[in-house]
């Protein structure tokens, strides 16, 4: 896909899903250090349009984060400092 040239100001880089790119990384709710990279500092899940994850992996990621929250590995809501 060319960006068309026609006066477009922004180039959109196709983001590559991190989990598709690196097959060695498995999504696991116990891996809170990994999951935390996909949450904001307030504890919210980073949306797909930002994280660049594919739908399949974003779904798995969301589930993993929610499971991690259930056993207090990740916050539902982080405190504001």
């Amino acid at each position: 896909m060319s960006t068309g040239g026609g006066g477009k100001k922004f180039f959109f880089r196709r983001k590559v899903c991190t989990f598709c790119a690196d097959k060695g990384v498995a999504l696991d709710y116990k891996d809170y250090a990994l999951l935390r990279r996909f949450t904001t500092d307030r504890g919210r899940i980073i949306p797909r349009r930002i994280s660049g994850c594919c739908a399949k992996h974003q779904r798995a990621l969301t589930n993993a984060i929610k499971m991690a929250r259930a056993i207090a590995l990740l916050p539902f809501q982080a405190a504001e400092d």
């Binding site: 922004f10 590559v16 990279r37 996909f38 660049g52």
Partner: peptide, 20 residues
Amino acid sequence: RWGEDGPAENTSADEGMGDE
């Protein structure tokens, strides 16, 4: 694994063209 900025970082590594 990833650096501090995490998932967003592969975006800057590719192609090397484009001038934002």
